[in-house]
Every structure is written in C-alpha cells, then in structure tokens.
Simulated assay, not measured.
Amino acid sequence: MANKKIWHEKLYCHLGQYFLIDKLLYETKTEYHKVIIFENSNFGKIMAIDDIVQTTEKDEFIYHEMMTHIPIFSHGSIKNVLIIGGGDGGILREICKHKDIKNITMVEIDINIINLCKKYFPNHNKNAYEDSRLKLIIDDGLNFTKKTKEKFDLIISDSTDPLGCGKNLFRSEFYYNCKNCLDKNGIFVAQNGVFFLQKNETITTYKKLKKYFYDTKLYHAAIPTYYGGIMIFAWGTNNIELNKKRNLINLQSRIKSTKLDFNYYNAKIHISSFYLPQYILNALNES
C-alpha cells in the first residue's frame, strides 16, 4: 500500500472521499475534460472527470436503471428517446433493452469519453453503440436542443456536475429547450446531485423546471459512489395524467410484460423513490 497513490475527489471544498489507486489505467486532459481512470479493489474500475467521480464498475447499475426505467415505465409508450451526455454508455445500454423503443438519439460533447469507456468500461454499454436504432451526435446538448426540430417522448440529461461545459445543462435555457423538444406527453429527467451537499443546485433546478412543467418532481436512489447521501434526480412533464397511472399494479404489469430483469429497479422502488425525506421537503417548501 505504501507504493500506491491515493486519489481525492474534489467536488466539495472542505471534504470528500478518497480512493486507493490499485492500478492507474489512463490519465489525460481532453479538449473538454480532465480524465482519470483507475482500478480500485472495492469499486472496480473508476472514471473521474475534472476531479469528480462519474462512474464505477461496482454500482453503476443503480444510477443507470433509475435514470431510464423510472420514466420509461411511468410513460408506458416511449418510442423516441434523446440522451444528453451519457458517454459511458450505461443509459444507452438500459434504453436498448426496451425493444418497443424505435429511435435513440445520443448527444455527447466529447467523443473521447465514448471511446475511453468502450475500451475500459465495456460492460457499461454491452455493445449498445452498435444498436441500429442509435443516432450518435457529437455536440453540446444546449446547442442541439436549441436547433433540433425533432420531438421526443423522453429526454434524459446524464450530465456531469454544473462545472465547466457541464454548466450548460443546468441553465434555464436548456430546460426550456428540452420542454420544446418533448412530445406533449413527454418526460424529462436529469441527474441533480446529492441534496445533502448540493442543496442549492437541486433547489435551483427545481425552481427552473417548475417554470416549464406542470408536473415537476424529485426522486432519489442510494448510490454508494456519490458521496454525501442519496442521489437526486429531477423529473418534469406536462402530462398530468401520469400521476393517476403511477400505481403499483400498473407498474408491475408493465414490467412483467417486458420480461426484463433488473439489479436495483422494481415497481416498489419506483413508487417509493418519489417519497422524499422531510429535510428535502422542508427545503423545497422554504425556497
């Protein structure tokens, strides 16, 4: 251990988590990001971007299942999907499991992230990049959503934290663009950090989304990789009928019909993820 390096995540100024680097696999600075990939005995391979952990082999399934199957099974008839970011391929992998989905557009700003993850994290995508339904576009998500004329049933913003080029995917303009890109019954979801340590980020996003969506919510999952408590996901839709259909029996029926297996997601997790701890509800009510 004396010869091994310790890597410190730097998302927060005065605290953070440390990882032992068992083996350094890759480290460089791309046009957009500083990237490091290394092996750790507890989490397997880890990728950090701009000194912030993005994904690990060990627990990535929690994040990716909750970002995709919550909106897909809530809607019940997703055909056209837009992924913003998601270069590691995990979101794409989970979407590709749904054979009723017809078209998948993925917009990633940095082709290098995709290529690195194909090499070092092949189980994240499991050949999903070869799916004939996929249209891959290398562009900034804000720019794409501003210019596209396409309409989507689901938009998933799988972004980095709001630092550097990631800031664009937390701007009010981006949320407005996404609202305009959605079909009238469409759903928008986005990662929104760990509330306990990123309270302002979550509240700011929530306020912005409420300007554009009748139904704005937060849901959550416990993901060990992301330091500081439960991970928050933002939800927005103008389809108010979805609330009436969000019940256990409907979800179980939809899930059963797909014959898919999951490692984290299930109908009860789906329902319970929208029930927030009181400290979050208090903060939202006070904002």
Results as ranks from 00 to 15, higher is better:
E9L: 01
Y63L: 05
E130M: 07
K179V: 04
D100R: 09
K211Q: 13
K102G: 00
T258P: 08
R254S: 15
V35H: 04
A222H: 06
I37Q: 13
K45W: 07
S172L: 04
Y264P: 08
F195N: 12
N42I: 11
G89P: 04
K45I: 10
K149Y: 11
N40C: 11
Y176V: 08
F152R: 00
I70H: 00
L248S: 14
S272F: 09
E173W: 04
K184M: 08
I203E: 13
E39F: 03
F195G: 12
S41E: 15
I78M: 04
T105V: 12
K199R: 13
S159M: 03
G86Y: 00
G193S: 12
G229K: 07
I78R: 03
T56F: 05
G236L: 00
K208V: 11
Y26L: 14
F121C: 02
L82A: 01
I91W: 10
S74C: 10
C117H: 06
F213V: 09
I155C: 11
G44R: 02
H69Y: 10
C181D: 01
L218C: 09
Y227D: 00
I91L: 07
I113N: 07
L182W: 07
K29V: 15
A267V: 12
T68R: 10
L116Q: 02
L25Y: 09
R93T: 03
I223G: 05
D110A: 03
K79I: 06
E286Y: 04
T148V: 13
L276H: 05
T30Y: 03
S273V: 07
I114H: 08
Y275M: 08
Q191A: 07
I70A: 02
T237F: 00
E39I: 03
V107I: 01
L242V: 02
E39M: 11
D50Q: 00
F274D: 04
G236D: 02
V189L: 09
F174N: 09
P71Y: 03
D110L: 03
N115Q: 13
T105M: 01
D22R: 07
Y279L: 11
G90I: 01
G141R: 04
N247K: 12
T237H: 00
E94F: 02
K146A: 10
M231W: 14
S253R: 14
Q198K: 10
V81K: 01
N243W: 07
R171C: 02
R171P: 05
A222C: 04
T68G: 09
N180C: 09
I37L: 13
K184H: 09
D51S: 13
G76I: 02
E150T: 10
H124S: 15
N247S: 09
Y63E: 07
F38S: 11
G164D: 10
T56C: 15
I84L: 07
I84M: 05
A222R: 00
S172R: 01
K210V: 01
I280N: 03
G86E: 04
V189I: 11
K10H: 11
T56Q: 01
N250R: 14
V107E: 06
G193C: 08
Y129H: 05
W235L: 08
C117T: 10
Y12W: 14
D51W: 01
N3H: 13
G16F: 06
